[in-house]
Simulated assay, not measured.
Amino acid sequence: MHIPVVRAQHVIDNIGVLRDAGVPIERELERSRLPAFIEQTPDAYVSLPRALDWAWRSSRELGIMEVGFLAGRATSLSRLHPAVQRAVIGAPTGLSRIEALSHQVHRENSALQIDIRREGVDRRVLCEVRGFQNSPFVGFAEWKAIVGVINIVRSAAGSDWCPTEITFVSRGRPSHAAREAYGNARILTGQQHCSILVAAADIAQICIGRRSSAVDVNGPTSPPRTPFGLGDAWDFVTAVRALIRPYLAQGHPPLSLVAEIVGMSERSLQRRLAKCGATYSDIVQDARFAIASDLLVDSDLNIADIAFAAGYENAPHFSRAFKRLTGMTPRDYRGALV
C-alpha cells in the first residue's frame, strides 16, 4: 500500500492564496485534521488526499483551477526541498534540470511522477499525479507541478519563455489570468495526461546563471545528501513516520488519528506495521528522536523547548528517553557535536 504524502510547503502556498482572497480557512483546516502548526513546518509531510480535500473545501468560491494557478505562481526554486534545490541547481541545462527534478520530485509529492517523451523536434514533459487521475481535486497538484517545470525551463530559455501547449487531466476551466500568463500557449483540460510541450532546442541550452563559466554538459553531477529517514522511494513505515512528525508538537498522536489519516482501521494499521517489523510505538519513538536530534544539532533551542517540539510531556521525560536510545543526555549529545 502506497501512502501519498506531500510536503507542507505546497499546502502553505494554498493557505497564502486563500488568505489573500479573504477566505476564512481556519475551520476547514481544523476539520481536515491537518497538523495545527503546519505553517511553521514547511519541510514536514502531510497526507496528500487530506491536503487536496482541504484545498477543495476551502476554494469553492474561487475554484480549483484559479487557486491552483495562483498557488503555482508562488512556486520558486527557493521553496523546494533543499535536496531538490541542490540537484536542480547542480544540473547545467534545462533538460538535465528537468531530469534532476524527476529523480527528486518524490521529496515534494510522493504521488508525482515526471517523465520526458519525444514528440518529433519537441519534448513533452509529463507530470502525472499517480492514483489521482480521477480525483476532482487533482488540479491543485497539477498546477504546482506544471509551474515548477515551466520555471526550470525558463532558467535556460529566459524568463519570458512559454510552452507551446499545457494539458491538464483536471476538467476545470483555466482562469483568464492563467491564460494571459502563458501567452499563446494552448491550455487544454480533460486530457489523458498533465503535461507541457517544449521545443527540444529550448531545454538543450545551458542555464542562464551558468553561461559565464565553462560547463561540461555531459559531466556527472554530485548526488545530493539524503536526509534522515528519507530514501529514494517512500515505503510504508517511512511514510507513516513522516506523517507523525508534524503532529508531535501537539503531544503524542493517538493511533486512531494516524489510522484515520492513512485511511485504515487501527487494527489494519497495526498489522501492516507488524509485517514491516515495526510497532506504532517504534514509529513514534523514531519520529521523536529524529526531531530532537535535528534540533539539538541545528538550533539554539533549549532542552525544554526541544522536548515540547518532539512531543514529550516535559524535559526530564525527554532526557530519560533520549539517554535510553543514545546512552547520552540531550545536553551531552549537543556538547559532543560542538
Results as ranks from 00 to 15, higher is better:
V258H: 01
V262Y: 15
I152S: 10
H106L: 14
S76A: 09
R97E: 10
D282W: 04
I283H: 07
F236C: 02
A177I: 13
G120D: 06
I15N: 02
Y182V: 05
D332N: 09
A201D: 11
R179T: 05
G63C: 03
E128G: 04
A274V: 08
I25V: 15
A315S: 06
N109H: 12
I12C: 15
R19N: 14
R33V: 12
F69K: 06
A55H: 07
F132A: 12
P254Y: 13
A200M: 01
R60G: 10
S256C: 01
Q9R: 11
I203S: 13
G219I: 00
S293V: 05
N109S: 07
R272G: 01
S175A: 13
C207D: 12
V237C: 05
I187P: 05
F236S: 04
W54A: 08
G183I: 04
E39L: 08
I166M: 08
C276D: 08
V338M: 11
C207M: 14
I89S: 15
S135R: 01
V215P: 01
T326L: 09
E108P: 11
A71S: 15
T93M: 09
Q133C: 02
L101C: 07
V23N: 01
P82D: 00
H103Q: 05
A315W: 06
G277P: 03
E66D: 12
I146E: 09
V149R: 06
S110G: 02
L80G: 04
A199Q: 13
L48I: 06
A309Q: 13
D300K: 13
L80E: 15
D235P: 00
E28H: 15
S96Q: 15
K144A: 14
P223S: 13
F308T: 02
V149T: 10
R130C: 11
Y280I: 11
R288P: 01
R60E: 09
